[in-house]
């Protein structure tokens, strides 16, 4: 029962990732692409949490934390590059 509901949730997150990839491809400006990358990463944190339940390993939570940290730093650096230059 729990695994069935989690597989449905996994399907919704997969649909969200597909829509985000569409925006990443057609986005008119580069800021659109950065937003799509940010949304993709934050959705992937939830996805990694569900995979950590389905494979029953707690070590994936550390991977999700490091992934979110790298995405946060990347978005900050890109925004600073557009605003003031490196």
């Amino acid at each position: 029962m729990v695994n069935l509901i989690l597989y449905i949730a996994l399907g919704f997150v997969g649909l969200a990732l597909i829509l985000t990839i569409i925006r990443f491809i057609i986005g008119r400006t580069n800021i659109d692409r950065v937003i799509a990358l940010d949304v993709m990463t934050v959705s992937s944190i939830a996805l990694i949490g569900m995979i950590a339940h389905l494979t029953n390993r707690v070590i994936y939570m550390d991977i999700a934390l490091v992934y979110g940290l790298l995405s946060f730093i990347a978005v900050l650096i890109i925004a600073r590059y557009y605003e003031k230059g490196l």
């Binding site: 509901i5 989690l6 449905i8 949730a9 919704f12 969200a16 829509l19 937003i35 949304v39 939830a46």
Partner: peptide, 15 residues
């Protein structure tokens, strides 16, 4: 978790 994934899908649709 299902409600949270629904919010993720709606956010991507708004994107």
């Amino acid at each position: 978790t299902l409600i949270g994934s629904l919010f993720l899908f709606l956010g991507a649709l708004g994107l």
